[in-house]
């Protein structure tokens, strides 16, 4: 089991869950926990792209890039272990706004102890909200842990701006 992943999980649990050790059970709880935590990151950006284009890009990449399961092999002092990480994205889109949720299930991983109930599709990794500002501008709000998942965050922001044309390597934290 990758130590950095354990660390990130711990931070996520402590930071977003708070001392009560409660995992957010839905996207709204994740947003609320992020607002209340100093360990969370909330980024708000406005991109100069029409809302429809932004949504089209999210629809193009969300399932293709984020609905993935990976085997991660980690070796420390010659001892190797393998775990499976399963990412599940959810994209909810209306004319008024779009939400992208990303959950990570590591239930088969060793050395990860569950301290509170984890949602069925795994812990929330990030929640992104996109809303139209005017015909040419879209506002993005990205809720996530302060550390880790930098590649995923880079990708989803890049999809919004149109600067990233590809998928994030979900194994790269």
């Amino acid at each position: 089991m990758n130590k950095s992943i354990i660390l990130i999980l711990s931070v996520a649990i402590l930071g977003l869950g708070g001392c009560s050790m409660h995992h957010p059970q839905n996207a709204q709880e994740f947003r609320t926990a992020a607002v209340a935590s100093s360990m969370a990151s909330i980024e708000s950006i406005e991109v100069q792209r029409p809302y429809k284009k932004v949504v089209k890009t999210f629809k193009k990449y969300t399932d293709k890039c984020l609905a993935k399961a990976y085997e991660i092999t980690s070796c420390v002092n010659g001892a190797c272990s393998t775990s499976v990480q399963t990412y599940t994205p959810t994209l909810i889109s209306t004319r008024a706004g779009t939400e992208l949720h990303l959950q990570l299930d590591m239930s088969n991983a060793v050395n990860v102890s569950t301290v509170s109930e984890i949602p069925e599709k795994g812990m929330y990794v990030l929640v992104l909200d996109a809303v139209p500002v005017d015909k040419k501008t879209t506002r993005i709000e990205l809720y996530s842990g302060k550390w880790g998942y930098t590649t995923i965050k880079k990708a989803v922001k890049g999809w919004a701006t149109g600067e990233v044309k590809g998928c994030p390597d979900l194994t790269a934290t």
Partner: peptide, 30 residues
């Protein structure tokens, strides 16, 4: 200390007389 493999696949029936370009890139996690 870690290694990982990202696999991108597709089924394909190549047609006689046709050519196929596969464009691949990995740049800092993307």
């Amino acid at each position: 200390t870690t290694s990982s493999t990202i696999r991108v696949e597709t089924m394909l029936t190549a047609r006689k007389g046709y050519f196929y370009d596969v464009s691949a890139s990995y740049d800092d996690g993307i």
